[in-house]
């Protein structure tokens, strides 16, 4: 029963410092393990992806949200519901492309980077790249093929952190091949 008790406490809120520091040590370990910033970015994206494909289920179960009808609705839900639920922030949705298949999320105070300063020799490192992977993975599970990348990063001296999302295509359900 102890499991259940612990679950009662976790009511979706833990210290963001613990989270930020844990994440920081993951990045620090990757910096030790790999030499190239690109490779670190790739590893973070991959870890994010693996988180994303699971976190989507938690999100759907908790929010009870159904299928989105267009990409604008998806953008709204990502910023107002998902970011709020998992990171406690609400990024601004902006810079829509004219075709409506690309937008940016502006993050002013990224909870992951609370204690971080990037050294000069890691100018290519996207410190919070795990977020990109998580969004890509989660959206893939609801049949949206999306590219996600950092455009601006406060850690690199920009005024704001900007993540760009681009809708590529809808993934269709296929009937598994039968034997007959």
């Amino acid at each position: 029963m102890s499991r259940q008790v612990a679950r009662g406490v976790d009511t979706k809120k833990i210290s963001s410092e613990l989270f930020a520091l844990t994440y920081g040590s993951i990045v620090a370990q990757l910096v030790n393990d790999y030499e190239e910033d690109d490779e670190i970015n790739k590893q973070l994206d991959k870890m994010g992806y693996n988180i994303g494909i699971r976190i989507i289920e938690d999100f759907l179960a908790r929010s009870g949200i159904g299928r989105c009808t267009d990409f604008r609705e998806t953008a709204d839900i990502i910023s107002k519901v998902a970011f709020k639920m998992f990171l406690g922030i609400t990024p601004v949705v902006t810079n829509w492309s004219s075709t409506g298949d690309e937008f940016s999320l502006l993050i002013e105070n990224n909870p992951l980077t609370e204690f971080v300063e990037l050294p000069d020799n890691h100018s290519q490192l996207n410190y919070s790249n795990i977020i990109c992977g998580a969004m890509r993975g989660a959206l893939e599970m609801v049949q949206l093929d999306v590219s996600v990348w950092f455009v601006q990063d406060q850690l690199k001296g920009d005024n704001i952190t900007e993540i760009r999302l681009k809708f590529n295509k809808r993934l269709e359900d296929a009937l598994p091949p039968g034997e007959d």
């Binding site: 989507i56 289920e57 159904g66």
Partner: peptide, 14 residues
């Protein structure tokens, strides 16, 4: 007349 099949699908396809 004998049974009912209840179906639930999540947006993730489960």
């Amino acid at each position: 007349s004998q049974y009912k099949l209840n179906f639930y699908e999540t947006p993730s396809g489960l």
